[in-house]
Structures are given as structure tokens and as C-alpha cells.
Design a protein around this nucleic acid. Structure first.
Lengths: 193, 193
DNA sequence: AAAAAATTAAACCATTTGGTCTAATTAGTA
DNA sequence: TACTAATTAGACCAAATGGTTTAATTTTTT
């Protein structure tokens, strides 16, 4: 019921700006400028910069959880092929972005995870949301005898996605996808039944 | 040949402060305060904050490369057991630190890797230095038929250490080592011959 | 239509930012 | 010993930081 500005629009600007520039490198003024909202209105919506960042992470996380669910529902391949398709898509996205942004949840975890409790907790929460989606696909793959049963679906999900974060972080400084592709090959070789 | 202050001492303060607080969250004044050096002296040693951070990363990287070499030279176990011993040590270190700092190279890569060319390049350079040390151990393990030969030693090194970065980043927000330990189990199960 | 509540707007605040400047002091060299 | 260069020292700078305040406007409720 905002009168003039939509909270969601400002959150989307925050997502864009934070992902590209980090948290401490961004001032409120930059958010205001890019969203065209005056300072007073901003602090009417959000208690503080920290509160704003937390809500940005939450929106980003929930949006992606929904998107992932749809992605896997719409995917007609076998579970493991759906996972491959998902990570291929993610790697292509990051290549198009020239490895500039990466994942907001990873970036925030590393930069602010231990400095701000609310931000750290929110990043963890959203990550767990994604894990559950991934684990349900992995679980199906285990039922179909495609994926190893030596570890639980959740353990495998955490292993895979944390590994993806690792190569994503590396790609920020190598500026190429070579080892991202190697990671892809190795991971899916390792987890197969 | 410094008159009063040692460049290396200031770099060590920088390592400590940057690792705990990140790059953009730290002001020059904090470095000055903690090292007890006046501003004029600081800018006599370093061109800028960026230049300072780059030198901090370099010193950190080179020190650790030396340390790793010694670690593996002194390790009398089989190659794969030496690797396990190394990562166990690293995980224990991070547990003692309560997952506060993490690895400066990873932190800098994620936060500043795409914002500052010199810092990004330096972080990558030092990471590669470590990779070479790890790869030589892995290579021995492959010769001994302990480690899979399906991938090159360097590819395996990048896979393992990037994966370690992934779980290290995660530990910053989970604040426990559960999935770090799972990562350890899975990784060494996967790479065995 | 009137009153109350929410929202918009931007000027303003103390503090901190990275960095410069000038002066004094120290060290190495002729 | 005299001269030059390096180092030390911190006051100083404009710009930006996150956040507050007050006033005007708009919406909702009565």
C-alpha cells in the first residue's frame, strides 16, 4: 500500500547494487540515486542500512527458491540431468555477467556474515531454502539409482552448492570459466551412483 | 632499513585487520591506530590503501606458500594422508577462530576481486602459488596409485581448494564445522584411486 | 468534510573516509 | 662536519558516511 514508491522496487535496486559492489562499499546515497527515492522515504521503509540489506537478501533468496522449484518441476529430464542443466544455466549466467556479481548470498556471507548477525543469519536461511530444493531432486536421483547413496541428499546438496560457491569465487579473479567447467565435470562424475 | 617502523609489521597488522573486517569496512585510520604508525609514515611506505592491501595479500600468500612446502616436506605420511593432515589442520585453525576470519585470499577475491584489478590479480596469483604446492603432493599420490588419474593434479588441486573455500564461506554463517567435516569425508572419498 | 495517520521531501548532523601538505627530525654520504 | 635524502609527525582537506529532523503533502479514517 505504498503511496508512491514500491518497497519491492527499492529492494531490487539494492540487490543489483549490493551484488555488484558489496555491502560496505555501497552507501545509502547510491541506493537512493539509483532508485530515485529521497532519503526520508527510504528510512520510512527501512530501519537502517543493515535492515535493508537483510530484506534484500530475503527477497533474493525467496525469489530464487521459487524459481528453482519451477525449474525442476518443468524439467523433463532425469534428476541428475536436471541438476546438470541447472548448474549449466547458472554457469552461463555468470559467464554473461563476466563473473562480476556472483551470488549475493555468498558475497554477503563472506563479507558481512560474521560482522552482522541478522545479515549472516538471513544469508544462511536463504541458502538452506535452496538446499532443500536441491536435496529433493538429489533424493529422486538416489531413488532412481543415478546418484550415490553413500551420503544423504542434504549432505550432497551442501557439498555441491558450497563447491559451486568456491569456483564462483575463484572465477571472480581468474575471470574465466575453465575451472568452473572442470568442477562441473568432476562433481557429476563423483556423485554418480 | 626503516628508521623506526618495519614495513613487515604494518603488513601483519593489515593482514589481521583485513581478514577480520574485510577491505571496505576498514579505514586507514584503523590500521594506523593498531600499528601505532602516523599517517605520514604510512603513506611513505605505501602509495594508497589499494597498494597496501595488495602487499598484504602478497606477504600472506608467500608466507603460506613457504609454510605449506615445509609442512609437506616434514610430513612422513603417504601423499593423500599428508593432504588429509593439512586440511584437518586448516579446519581446526578455523574452528579455533570461530570461523571469523577465513582466508584473506578468498575474502579479498569475493569482496574486491572484480572492483580492483591489482588486488584481484594478486589474490589469484597467490592462490596459484598454493595450488602448485598442492598439485605436487597430489601428483605423488597419483604416482603411488592413491589418487585418481582421471584428472590432472592441478585440476584436482583447484577442485579441492576451491571446494574448501566454499565450505569455509559457508561456515562463516552456519558457525559450525558440520558441513566442513562432511566436505572432508566426501572429497577424500571421491578423489581416491 | 475534518482529523489522524502515513508518506514524502530534503536540509542538516557529527563522524569518518582516503589522501595531502608542510615542517621537523633522522640517517647516510661527501 | 656539512649537505642531502629519507623518514617521521600530525594537522588539515574535501567528500562521503549512516542517520535524524522538521515540514509539507498525501492518504485513510471518522
Amino acid at each position: 500500500m505504498g503511496y508512491k514508491y514500491e518497497k519491492e522496487d527499492i529492494l531490487n535496486v539494492g540487490l543489483d547494487v549490493f551484488r555488484r559492489n558489496g555491502y560496505h562499499n555501497v552507501g545509502i546515497n547510491q541506493i537512493l540515486k539509483e532508485s530515485g527515492i529521497p532519503k526520508g522515504s527510504f528510512y520510512n521503509f527501512f530501519e537502517s542500512k543493515e535492515d535493508f540489506a537483510q530484506q534484500v537478501i530475503r527477497q533474493y533468496g525467496e525469489t530464487n527458491t521459487c524459481w528453482m522449484k519451477e525449474f525442476f518441476e518443468d524439467c523433463s529430464l532425469s534428476p541428475i540431468e536436471c541438476l546438470k542443466s541447472f548448474y549449466t544455466y547458472m554457469m552461463n549466467l555468470n559467464e554473461e555477467d563476466e563473473y562480476c556479481g556472483g551470488c549475493l548470498v555468498n558475497n554477503m556471507s563472506v563479507e558481512v556474515g560474521r560482522k552482522s548477525d541478522p545479515i549472516g543469519a538471513e544469508a544462511n536461511q536463504q541458502f538452506i531454502g535452496w538446499l532443500n530444493v536441491l536435496a529433493s531432486v538429489i533424493s529422486k536421483g538416489q531413488d532412481d539409482n543415478e546418484i550415490t547413496k553413500e551420503f544423504s541428499a542434504l549432505e550432497l546438496a551442501e557439498y555441491i552448492h558450497a563447491g559451486f560457491y568456491g569456483v564462483l569465487s575463484r572465477a571472480k579473479v581468474t575471470r574465466n570459466r575453465v575451472y568452473m567447467d572442470v568442477w562441473f565435470q568432476m562433481t557429476f562424475k563423483f556423485i554418480q551412483a
